[in-house]
Each structure stands twice: as structure tokens, then as C-alpha cells.
Nucleic acid binder design. Structure first.
Lengths: 161, 161
DNA sequence: GTTAATGCAAAGCATTTGCACACGT
DNA sequence: ACGTGTGCAAATGCTTTGCATTAAC
């Protein structure tokens, strides 16, 4: 587990160096730190969460830089913004095909790996939309919220059948 | 096409009345106007877009009300917030199972109806996550952006293989 | 008449932009 | 040295909250 993760991080780092060089982008401490933090976690953090996590580790990183660097990573194909119903961007260093489950109560996002879903037939989307990728989004209640009665909280607010 | 849409709108309106009554919520002009607007369009608008559209039609609607009413609709199961990578909430009056294609260039969201995808086997998400629904998100380039060279714009920003 | 919803103004997060300085190459 | 990246501060965009007023039942 830890080994796999470490391997993922170092490979990601190498990939970043390669892509940055290829695109004449500087290899800064900030870029390394942000990529390393993003790759080391599996909780699909927001820019602000990454900022908070890095604050202690390197001196004087700014929120602005985190936003800018993450955007660069998306452009370089090193990370992706994942689809979620919240009004904020969430990032994922894993750009391989995989899927997500989102808790409608606490908004936690967890990875779903399901080989069966990794090569579905792409339907004719119509209107000449050119599909380049897809992912399946599951919604429901996570174990934490189930335990805390999260489901009850929802019905109490008026969700009726 | 128009008939179908009109039927959808009036059914949605009836459903709202039923749900509101059942939950002792008032049937206000604003709620009707917002639901009618949302149900009449297929562009998955943001709260602000709905606000803009209604402005002219009923006198003095406020942005705050639009946000609050949409939230209520989600709680009542009359609408859903759809997953998207942008940092804002988008709404959909269609709560039946269906899927979406999102243009990575202009962020347009279009509906994808594909019976094959409407009853996939829900994988064991693990950690006791209780799945209640899912949808497939396709990403790519829409016809507009294809025509305008949207794809080129992306590669020029540094997306390399 | 009660209870709940709306509108306004202000506050609160999330994100972006302009510009001067600092760093990577 | 040169060009790019960063940090700061301020601006902008999206969403929520508190409170008085108004509308629905």
C-alpha cells in the first residue's frame, strides 16, 4: 500500500519534470510540493485543502500559487478536476480511468475501481460531440454518515418518495 | 418535441404542488416560476442563469430566493445538482436516470440518453458506501468548440500526450 | 392569525487578476 | 541576464445568512 503510493508519487514527479521541461516551464519548489501533496492523498482535495496541507511544510507558499499551479497541472495532463455537485473544484492526481462515489451528505469523494466500467461502449452523444473520456459517478451515503444517521437527516429535511 | 416538453413541465409543476403540500411548504409565485423555468430548459443552468431568465417575467424576484428555492427543490427530489468540474452548481429538473456530456472547453453540459448505461451493475464500492444512484459523465469537445477550433486551443496550452 | 417565504444588505467562501519582486534556467 | 513564477493585495464571482417585511394557508 505504502509502496504502491510511493511509487505513484515518484513516477508522477518524474512525469511532471518531463512535461515541464518539454513545455519550458520552471521546476519550482512550489510545483514539486503541490504535486507531491496531491499525489500523496486520495481524498480529492480542493485547492484550499492543498494550500492548508502545504503551509507548514514549505515556507511562504501562497494560495494564489496553489490555484495557478493546479491549473497548470490540469493543462499538462498531470491532474484532473473531478466532476462533483459542489460549488468548488476538486483535484485528482490519478488521471487513469476510474470512477467516484460521492456522499450526498458530507460530499466526501472516494475512488471506485471497477474493470467492468472501464470500457463501456461510448454511445452516440449526438450533435457531433467528440467524447475523449468518461467516468461513472455514484451518489449515496458514505459509511461515516450512515453511522451518524446521515440518511435520516436527509429525510427529515423533506425528501419523500 | 414541444408537446413532450410542455407535458414534462406541467407534470413537474403538479409534482411540486403535491410535494409542497405534503411537506407543508407554501406554493409561492416564485417557486412556480423557478420550477417552470428550470423544467423548460435543457441547458443545466446555474442559479444565476435562472435568476437572469426570470427577472423580466415576474416582478422583483431576488437572487437569494432563487438559491433558496433551488435548494428546496433538491431536498424535495424535484431537481438535482449535477456533477461538473466547474466551481459552481448546475441544476437539472430531470431526475430520471440519464447521463451528461461536458465540453472541457466551454463547459456546456448536454444530456446523454443511453439505455445501455441505465442499469449497469453497481460495483461493490467498499467501505459500506450505500449507493443510491449513479450517472455517467462524458468529457470532450462540443460541436461549437470543434467548429471554432476549440481542440486546438487546448493543445496549444500544453496538453501533450 | 400563524407560520413560513421573500427581499435586502452584508458577510462568507472560492477563485482570479495586476503588478512588483524573486527565482529557475 | 532573461523570462517565467511567485506573493501580495485587491477584485470578482458564487453562495449563504440575519433580519425585517410580506405573503400563504
Amino acid at each position: 500500500m505504502c509502496e504502491q503510493r510511493d511509487k505513484f508519487i515518484s513516477e508522477k514527479l518524474s512525469l511532471m519534470e518531463e512535461r515541464c521541461r518539454r513545455n519550458k516551464l520552471s521546476l519550482t519548489v512550489q510545483r514539486r510540493a503541490i504535486l507531491e501533496n496531491l499525489a500523496s492523498r486520495s481524498d480529492h482535495p480542493t485547492a484550499d485543502q492543498i494550500y492548508a496541507a502545504i503551509q507548514g511544510k514549505i515556507t511562504g507558499i501562497s494560495r494564489t500559487t496553489v490555484y495557478r499551479v493546479l491549473e497548470t497541472f490540469v493543462q499538462l495532463g498531470l491532474a484532473q478536476k473531478i466532476s462533483n455537485p459542489e460549488a468548488k473544484a476538486r483535484f485528482d492526481a490519478d488521471t487513469r480511468r476510474h470512477h467516484h462515489a460521492i456522499c450526498v451528505n458530507c460530499e466526501e469523494v472516494i475512488d471506485v475501481h471497477a474493470p467492468d466500467l472501464d470500457s463501456i461502449a461510448i454511445p452516440d452523444v449526438g450533435q457531433a460531440f467528440q467524447v475523449t473520456d468518461y467516468s461513472v459517478n455514484f451518489t449515496g451515503i458514505c459509511r461515516n454518515c450512515l453511522a451518524k444517521g446521515g440518511a435520516a437527516h436527509i429525510t427529515e429535511r423533506g425528501v419523500v418518495s
